[in-house]
Write a protein that binds this DNA or RNA. Structure first.
Lengths: 218, 218
DNA sequence: GAAGCCCCTGAACGGCCATTCACTTTTGCC
DNA sequence: GGCAAAAGTGAATGGCCGTTCAGGGGCTTC
């Protein structure tokens, strides 16, 4: 027993079985998202999701091929948007790798604070996707990592970054992963009630990242 | 469909239904651990676990009260050990906060590389524990975080750390969380086949942590 | 008003779940 | 050798799962 998952504290899932006024696909997506966030994909049933938006189980299959496809749909849209805003932030930050890194971290952290539940679902539930569907999510993650690796490489080449070395070698990929892990998991504990706001959090993380890679003063 | 979870690449779970030679409690723990790591708690059945160690479903309940208790048992031992080694590392590192921080990160990262599957299970599956059982795991996590906060506070007081500020204020708890997130999630991607070994990884992370908190040269 | 379409319902299907229990086997100890 | 206690069996219990599908409303378009 104990199929219950810790509640991620979220607007309580309404017991109200009233029909959601939005178009059904959207209503289903929203209900599924809320439930996945709160209880986790494997223990949320199709019946749960459909009840939450005032429909019956069978109706799901008029809009999605399967529960699996529904999850993919939810994660893919979050992830795609993330990739987009990261690219955009870096592109609009000018030519200095320091500015690029700061802009990247800033946007990434801001987004993981503001949309922390979305980020949480995208990161936590991805492992339940079937092998075929998980592939493009992973591709997008790798793409984001590569943006960061590129910035670091540029910074080193131009002599504005001096990241730590071990045994005389640098592993920029490892450093990029470390920074990403750090920024990603803000979404696991950040709450709007905390001491720092989103912008302040973003600034703190950008500072730490610049220090970690040994950015020369601008 | 698709109850499959991404394989975490692990010694393949033997199809062999031969009886595990170890004492049953231990065999069950080991089998459960391997399966949880590979496929995730909610989709691993009691039948799966018991078959993997050559017993039948019912026998589980001679050793554990429930599947939930089994999971707690596994996570709690990993977590307890982690807390212990962290305390030990800090205690044995002398008086300088820089040495303490380096020792802490070193041990923490080493452990998360070497026992990455254990760490992964402890971090990923904790949310399936019932409310009562999750409490002491969280307590231990908080204790580890507090070790780190204490080190940072000492370092600032003695003037050997100069961590980033936002709007003139410092949030040492946020910084501690950021460092912990970074170090914890090495276990999600580190593989022994990578460019850096465990010790090198630990050194890299210790370097980054010292830089992030603005440690003065020793 | 008929036809065609989209959407929804709710029963049905085949299957698996954690846990319990009456019963048998094995073990350790006198 | 005898006997309790411990450990294991496998069927049974009661329930939930994702998905399918025949049937039925209510649109729009002729």
């Amino acid at each position: 027993m104990s199929k219950q998952r810790k509640p991620v504290r979220l607007a309580a899932v309404p017991v109200a079985p009233e029909r959601d006024p939005r178009p059904p696909v959207e209503a289903i997506r929203a209900a599924a998202f809320a439930q996945f966030a709160e209880r986790g994909y494997p223990v949320v049933t199709v019946r749960d999701i459909m009840k939450a938006c005032g429909l019956t189980q069978g109706a799901l299959y008029n809009h999605f091929k399967s529960k699996d496809e529904l999850l993919h749909d939810i994660i893919a849209s979050t992830q795609g948007e993330l990739e987009r805003v990261c690219q955009q932030a870096v592109a609009g930050a000018g030519d200095d790798p320091r500015a690029k890194l700061a802009a990247f971290v800033r946007v990434y952290v801001m987004r993981h604070c503001r949309l922390r539940v979305e980020a949480l679902v995208a990161n936590r539930e991805i492992s339940w996707l079937g092998a075929e569907r998980v592939a493009d999510i992973r591709r997008s993650r790798r793409a984001i990592r590569d943006i960061l690796v590129t910035i670091l490489t540029q910074g080193v080449e131009r002599g504005v970054f001096d990241p730590p070395q071990v045994d005389g070698r640098r592993d920029l990929k490892a450093i990029a992963m470390a920074l990403l892990d750090q920024c990603t998991h803000v979404s696991m504990w950040y709450g709007p009630g905390g001491e720092l706001g989103e912008e302040q959090m973003a600034k703190l993380y950008a500072d730490m990242a610049l220090r970690a890679v040994g950015a020369k003063p601008q």
